[in-house]
Structure formats: structure tokens, C-alpha cells
Design a protein around this nucleic acid. Sequence first.
DNA 1: CTAAAAGCTGAATCCTAAG
DNA 2: GCTTAGGATTCAGCTTTTA
Lengths: 376, 376
Amino acid sequence: MSSVVSLAEISRAARPLNWLDSIIKGDCVAALNALPDNSVDVVFADPPYNLQLGGMLHRPDQSLVDAVDDDWDQFASFEAYDAFTRAWLLACRRVLKPTGTLWVIGSYHNIFRVGAILQDLHFWILNDIIRRKTNPMPNFKGRRFQNAHETLIWATPNAKAKGYTFNYEAMKAANDDVQMRSDWLFPICSGNERLKGDDGKKVHPTQKPEALLARILMASTKPGDVVLDPFFGSGTTGAVAKRLGRHFVGIEREQDYIDAAAERIAAVEPLGKATLSVMTGKKAEPRVAFNTLIESGLIKPGAVLTDAKRRYSAVVRADGTLASGGEAGSIHRLGAKVQGHDACNGWTFWHFEEGSSLKPIDELRSVIRNDLAKLN
Amino acid sequence: MSSVVSLAEISRAARPLNWLDSIIKGDCVAALNALPDNSVDVVFADPPYNLQLGGMLHRPDQSLVDAVDDDWDQFASFEAYDAFTRAWLLACRRVLKPTGTLWVIGSYHNIFRVGAILQDLHFWILNDIIRRKTNPMPNFKGRRFQNAHETLIWATPNAKAKGYTFNYEAMKAANDDVQMRSDWLFPICSGNERLKGDDGKKVHPTQKPEALLARILMASTKPGDVVLDPFFGSGTTGAVAKRLGRHFVGIEREQDYIDAAAERIAAVEPLGKATLSVMTGKKAEPRVAFNTLIESGLIKPGAVLTDAKRRYSAVVRADGTLASGGEAGSIHRLGAKVQGHDACNGWTFWHFEEGSSLKPIDELRSVIRNDLAKLN
DNA sequence: CTAAAAGCTGAATCCTAAG
DNA sequence: GCTTAGGATTCAGCTTTTA
């Protein structure tokens, strides 16, 4: 898995070719044009934001902010940025299946232009999603509100496209049995997750957190689907797709990013089939979940939970449900089921191992709640 | 306070006219064109969202959702909506002071178009703000994420406008002493706050919560400022402006909305002056020169100052400069120089000995400022 | 050794009055 | 218009150093 393919190779080869699970080196639009029609289930795009930064910015302690001033984020004008945006969006639509959807992420610098062009091209917006950051960079000069979020747009290729994938039940179960909202909260990508070179410096200036991609793919794809990222960067989309049993295609111009992404993806261990099964609706086993803990890394998919006396055990799945003895469901339903009860508070029933002792998962929820409380 | 003025009256009258704290009946652009240049401190605009709703929507219990399908929300095309948007934005810019700012609120149906046009017209975006709703309407069909937010854009009339009002200190203090973020959480407008007619039905379909307007006005205006709302509706902007000691101007076409707004605003009791005073930071303090400390005898020529960790030291000279190792300059320049920085706040960097402890010379400046305050 | 303190950093359109 | 200089300004999370 995860080979690197040159644009020339794709163009030469008879289609279909082995471009799945590979990184295509080259210009985004040219590479897209080399791919077959209707071949991709979801596009996730993290295009340049066109930040238009002025001079240097210092923190109050006089240290210099390491700004995003790379060449790839420079555009001569809004017109140039708009033309670029139209080109890659049109190229993406051709390779998208009629039932596919497209995600774009951006900030106020570019997202309004992207959104308006999406509408002009007759894409159909399903949602705008707010990626709230728990730990954004402050506004050092006190002249604006702290810019604490980014915006995602989720759209179908046209207004009449109805067959797109949205794992509504799984999202709802993963959100304590209420439907998933349009405002999502994640930490920025830092710590061990952040790729660093031999010099200790970040490999890519804008690496996205895996938790964000995990929610996007769990919401809008099924296992085996093909996910295309036309601005692959350090390969977060590929890493999460592989882990979640989805195919990926990445397009990237810079060899340094390609090298880092290929190595990163090669190290990813895919999750097992049982962990990946996605809830399909009311016909599926009644389930609930708790995936903020999963997305935050407090509990990992595949982890085993037990009750306080270790009479029962269950495995955590990636969509935020539990599985045990052929049964699956939310923490509440499965807790009830294994005990033969009608109801159960999964938060206090299920425990995790810490050292040699067992603790209720409710303690982990408190951790999250404390974080949330700080934001309100 | 709060009279209703016809467009004809304004046009006939010699300016300046008593259009403050009144509702102007008429078309938004025509009414704006009747107002003088550079006369408004803040515009708050809640334009039609151009919702493009298809058929009727029913809840799972088959009850009908009361959608926004009013005539004023219907546009023939994106082009028509864009032309309308350009027209009112340009008209607003003319009446805005150079130091003024503009707020617009919208949803994914229209905000991307509004934002892109703002940029095309060379407005300069300061922030996009997310209004998170604690109690948004669910997605009844389970085909999308619950649309739980709206987006505001805050902008200056052009990129070079620097003198706008942002009550940073007040916002920070109101937010548990950490700077205010771009994601705001409010309940939707309901209960007693929601205006209802004699028939018990809501007066306006998109009435905004007063808490939202209060935060906007507390952040970006001073008492006595003029706030213009070109889509006045049920008059939330006017009610909050009056309560907070700001002037308002509302523009509205529909007589029913005007009547409801006028009655509502008349019932508002303004807060007292003491309640309205805005918290300010050091930026607003009178300037005190370092020389003043020497002249007043608080610091004597020849005294030795150090940084908080005694890593650097300097001698006070009679002319109000510091000297250290052959270098000399203002407290700021020399502080920067000894640290190898471009800039430095000498008031907080340099310390003097008091007993056995070190104190920043900023404390001596406070002494002077307190004396000055007694003279006023 | 642990605990506390200090240091570092993140998609940033980040000052303003006086001369 | 310009330049110059006074001096105001940061949150959370992780890592490294010091006590």
C-alpha cells in the first residue's frame, strides 16, 4: 500500500491503472485530468488559504511567529485565486461519482470565495461545518477576536444528487444519541502526531489533525470507498483512510511532502473489519457511542472495556460503538444487553484498565467536559 | 426616542436632520442614499438569506415546519442576489465613518456570496465569528448534520482602516480574563424575548437574540456611537442600542415590522452611565515620559536599573536616558538592545531595587498617573 | 527520583500618535 | 502623504530545564 506514481506513468498506462492508494506527483489539475470519470467517492481538499500576510509578527515576549509564507500560498490577486479554485473544483467534479461528495476546508481568507464559486458551479452545499480549535494561536496585539476556528464546506456535485453517503445513525450514536451538529471541537495537530524532520522542525506548516479526517470519513464514506485529496501535503487523509479501511489517492507537487507522507502511511496499521462496520440505520442493532473520547485519543479503537467486576468485556470500534460476543451497540445498550437489563448507564458501567485498577469511562468524559466547560 | 421617519421627509429636510434614533421606512439602498457621508460608527446587517427552500418540510410527527418563505427572501438567481448585495454594501460604506466597522450575519445559503463580494469591494475582514446555537432546529430527515450555527463577518471599509473601535479589554474581562474567541455560544431567540402578535404568532421569522447584539455593540462601539441597521426587522438592534446608550438608525420596508419595532424600543429603559462605562487598558492611559520620574524625584540620576532576573543592568542618566556598556538610549531602545530584540517595553522590563526585592519602573509610572488623576 | 518552572509554538490578513 | 519612536500585547499544550 502507498506507492508513488508519476503523472507520466498514469497518462501512459491503460486505464484502469493502479492509482489507488498512491500519491501522484504533479500539478493538481493536470493530475486530476489523468484520472478516470466517476471514480471517486469523496474528495477532501485543503487548498492554499491565500493568507496575504503583511510584515513579521512578534509575540509579546518578542519571539517571532513562524508564519505560513510558503510560495504555494501566494496568489497575485483574488482573480488569480478564483481561477485556480474554479479549475480544481471542476476537475474534481469530473472524477467524482454522481453519489460522491466533496469537502473543502478554509479560513475567512479564502472560504467565502470557495463557497461562492462552488455555488456558481452548481455544486449543492449540504452543510458548512465549523472546526473549533481548543488551542488556537492567540491574537497577540489585541486588535481582533482570537481566530479560533476554520470552516469546512460539504457539498454534492449538483443540486439533484441524492444518493450520497451520510452515516447519520453512526454519527448520532457517536454523539451520545443526539444528532451530530455543525460545530466540531478538536485540538490542533501538535505533540507526537505532528510530523517533524531530522532537524526537529515541522514537516508541513498546516498539518491537519487525524481526528478531523476520521470524523469526515466516518460520516461520509463506507469501508472500501475511494477518497481523493488533491492537496495531499503530509498525507493525513491517506493515513486516516488506510487506518479506516478506505482507499486513498493523493496529489502533491512537493517531493519533501510526498516522502514524508509515504513513510507515514506505510507505518499505519489498518483496523480490523469488525471494528470498522458502520451502522446503517434503524435496522442495525441499537447502538450508541461516545466518540469524542475516541477522537480525542483518550480511548483507542480496539481497546477492551469491562464492567467493574470483569464479568463482561467489549471492544471499542472506530464509529464510536462497542462490540461484544456478536453483539454491538452504544455503551448504554450493550451494557444493558450483556446484563440482561432493559437499561444501563454505560458511562458508569463500562470501565477501562489504568495500571492494575479499573476506572469507569465516566472519568474520561469528565476530562472532556472540563475542556468543554472552559470554552463556554 | 425612536420616531418613525419617511424617506420623503429625510430627502426634503436640510441636513443634518433628526434621523438619529428613528426608523426610516423605505427601500434599504434608497434610504441609505438619503443619509450623510461618514455619519455612522457601526453597521449591523442581517440581510435576506436567499434560502432557496424547495417544497414544504414536515417534522416526523407530520407537523409543518414554518419556513422562511417571505417575499423579501426570494431572489431570481445568484446574480440578482449578488447585485442586491453589492448595492447595499456600497451604500453602507458611504455612510460609514473611516473608523467605522460593518457586521453581516448569514448562513451557508448566502454568507459565502456576501463575504466574497465584501472582499471584491475591498472591505477588509477582521474576523469571521461563529454564532453557535444551544438549541437549533434539528435536521428532521437525517440527511445532513444539524445546522447549529450562523456566521458573522466583521470588516473595516478598507484594508488600511486602523482606527476602528475594539473594546479588547472589556471583552477579555467578560470572558474570565482570557481573550474572546471567534466562536460564540447563545440560545436562539425564544420565550418572552420573542415578539408575538395578537394572534400569538411570531412577528418576524428571523428575530435575533438581544444577547448577540449586545456582545457586538459592547465589542465594537462606544457609548454615544451611531449604529445603523439597514434590515431593521423587529428592531433588536435598536432595542439593544438604546439600552446600551448608543444611537440607532433603522431602515425597514414593512409597516408591520416597523410598528412592532417602534413599540418594542419605546419600552426599553436605557442603562445608567456608570453601568455603561467601557473597560480600557493601558493604551488609553495618559502618556508619562520616563523623564517625569526623574524630575519628580522618584528615580535619581545615577540609579541602577536591572531586568527582573538581574541579567542586565543600566544606569539612569540625568537627561532621561539609560546607559549600559557603552550603549545609551531610551528605556525601550536600550532594553531592546541589551536583549538583542527589535522592540521592548522598558516600563515592564527595567526594575528598581526596593528593600530586597525588584519592582518594575511601571509601578512608579502608576504613582505619577494617580497624581495626575487627582487633578481632574 | 519527582515536581515545578521555564521555554517553545501553532494557517495571523495583529499599533498608533506625533512630527 | 511619509517616518519615527513610544510602548502595548498571548492561550493552551507539550517539551525541556531546573530545583
